[in-house]
């Protein structure tokens, strides 16, 4: 009997899937930065998030993948769209791109990229053939509320501060008008 692995090589499928996801993510990321049209930027960002969902699926974490889709595409991109609704309409003349700003932005992202690449490369990645632990939803929940409890709470505090800040700014602007 011919096994399916003889017809289509698993290595090829794995490589193909990985590069497909990477291409989607990077295309989305470029679309999120380069075009001048702000709605295209948001949709590019959504595409990048979709690509990252694919990478999580590739790594075998369905739960994190679904959360990525639900939170980043479903909620965060939507919040950005809210912000866009408050921005000036597109028919008006766009503010010109300042060279100094572009160069600074490029420089900052280059430094961040180098630091992160250095971090990733300096770690000795050991080859793993099976998962070190059962990474089910239960484990994630347990870890979040025991080992990473402080981080978890700090992040919620940060979000709460951000929300209060946003309300304050909106309130101040309204009072001025």
């Amino acid at each position: 009997m011919i096994a399916i692995t003889d017809i289509i090589s698993p290595v090829l499928v794995a490589r193909g899937a990985f590069w497909l996801m990477v291409t989607i993510t990077l295309t989305g990321a470029l679309l999120a930065v380069v075009p001048r049209n702000i709605v295209h930027n948001i949709l590019g960002l959504a595409l990048a998030m979709f690509g990252i969902t694919g990478i999580y699926l590739y790594l075998g974490s369905q739960f994190v993948a679904m959360m990525q889709l639900l939170i980043y595409v479903g909620a965060i991109c939507m919040t950005y769209i809210f912000a866009i609704m408050l921005s000036p309409p597109l028919e008006l003349e766009l503010p010109k791109r300042r060279k100094a700003k572009v160069i600074t932005a490029f420089f900052v992202s280059l430094v961040t990229f180098i630091v992160m690449a250095q971090m990733i490369l300096s770690y000795k990645w050991a080859p793993v053939t099976s998962l070190s632990r059962d990474w089910s939803i239960e484990t994630i929940g347990q870890q979040l509320l025991t080992r990473y409890f402080l981080v978890f709470e700090l992040i919620s505090l940060l979000l709460a501060i951000a929300i209060i800040g946003a309300i304050m700014i909106a309130g101040l602007v309204r009072r001025k008008n």
């Binding site: 709605v39 959504a46 739960f63 679904m66 959360m67 639900l70 595409v73 991109c77």
Partner: peptide
């Protein structure tokens, strides 16, 4: 059958809004 069945429905149906926005804009 998926371990994340309900979540799959929620996360994919959240894409609908994105498309409504695309169409409207």
């Amino acid at each position: 059958e998926m371990n994340v069945g309900i979540l799959l429905i929620f996360s994919f149906s959240s894409l609908t809004v994105l498309s409504i926005l695309m169409a409207g804009w």
